[in-house]
Nucleic acid binder design. Structure first.
Lengths: 217, 217
DNA sequence: GCGACTACGTACCGTACGGTACGGTTCTTC
DNA sequence: GAAGAACCGTACCGTACGGTACGTAGTCGC
């Protein structure tokens, strides 16, 4: 019955505050800094309450992921009319958002936590992170691509394959480098130009040919 | 003077054997399974020797990375004459190798270890992993790309940018998913086709147009 | 006002780990 | 063959953490 602890809908405001404090501790000092005693002290609650609410330490970690995921609301994709320029701008925004999300403190801390636990057998944190965190982004991008294809702005055979290519063009090896703590990888001021270049390349691969093709030669 | 411990050239065969056993423990059960007492028991050595050889636990981890990196020898890039087909095959091989390396047990275990430690302030494991592990791959790919460009098979403005794009096309989000423990991401039997598709896309972006351009329309 | 409930703070327990010390054994070297 | 170094096995120490138990203080319903 540990699942009952993981439903962010049932979290009380007090519990959410404690989970936020836990995320803060995790961001500051990593997993080692997130101890039940330390969290109880930092959040001014008792260890007993923590265990009562979340079961055990793994339940707490899972609840943190669920809680954080519940805070992120994907911007609703209004199906307004898209011309090529607007569609391209939407893709650039998506790419920029993606880089900022992946490079955010909370995302990096949670991914480091889940990856650190991934070697352990019974750990479902990785799955949980993918399901709760990535699914939303994937769906948002998938819908965007689908819209672009229906409007004849891009074309592809396999939507998932196209999305994975888009993801690779945007993120490259930046995510892992940021996870490893390489300072050069975390340059939010560079994300915009990276996003624009990635989308330009994506259009070369999947764009429908148009009359305004620049041809340097 | 901890640096002295990290030079794999100075490791004795006995020390290498211990480091191999440590890598084995790390692969089996993650960082939690790699304790000094456990390693001493598994490798039939004394804890005192471990501390004498590697300084402390962090020194041991660094030595493991250095040791593993020293085992990987990049295949020497013989500058034989390359036509397009051979160059393309070389790139596919590189992509296939890259996916197999990143998805290997040792690589995943070491990356998980370094990422788990990345939040800690003084941790240089991430840097060490990038320097010792990735530099070789990067140089190999860079040389390959440079050769292709000199032969007029591909073209690019910025070699590093081209390489990063190549990396993104090959790896996509597979590395992080494998690090998170997603079973679907680790399908070595699928790596070859992924590699071929990535190289095909790379040629669309950076290939020099030739007469045999297939044009569906 | 009173019981039932919840939560806070603290103290406590068992365990496990990093690191050190020491006696005994094997191997090298002269 | 003796001196000395390297190493193994084990025992030991201090600490820190996960998890539990308990005494107390609010709070809500009646």
């Amino acid at each position: 019955m540990q699942e009952a602890f993981n439903d962010p809908e049932n979290f009380t405001p007090r519990q959410r505050a404690v989970l936020d404090r836990a995320l803060g501790l995790l961001m500051e000092g990593g997993e080692r800094a997130l101890t039940t005693a330390g969290l109880a002290r930092a959040a001014s609650c008792s260890k007993e309450s923590i265990y009562k609410w979340f079961g055990d330490r793994d339940g707490l970690l899972a609840a943190m992921i669920a809680h954080q995921a519940s805070k992120v609301r994907a911007p609703s994709d209004d199906g307004s009319a898209l011309d090529l320029a607007r569609f391209r701008a939407r893709l650039v925004d998506f790419a920029d958002d993606l880089l900022h999300v992946l490079g955010g403190d909370v995302s990096l801390a949670l991914n480091r936590l889940a990856i650190g636990q991934a070697s352990r057998e019974g750990s479902r944190l990785g799955q949980l992170l993918i399901e709760r965190g990535r699914r939303g982004i994937d769906r948002r991008a998938g819908a965007l691509l689908e819209t672009g294809r229906r409007r004849g702005l891009i074309d592809y055979r396999d939507r998932d394959a196209a999305y994975h290519t888009l993801y690779g063009l945007i993120v490259r090896d930046l995510h892992v480098r940021m996870l490893l703590g390489e300072p050069d990888a975390r340059k939010p001021e560079a994300f915009r130009s990276l996003a624009e270049e990635a989308i330009a390349q994506f259009f070369v691969l999947f764009g429908v040919r148009d009359t305004k093709k620049a041809d340097p030669a």
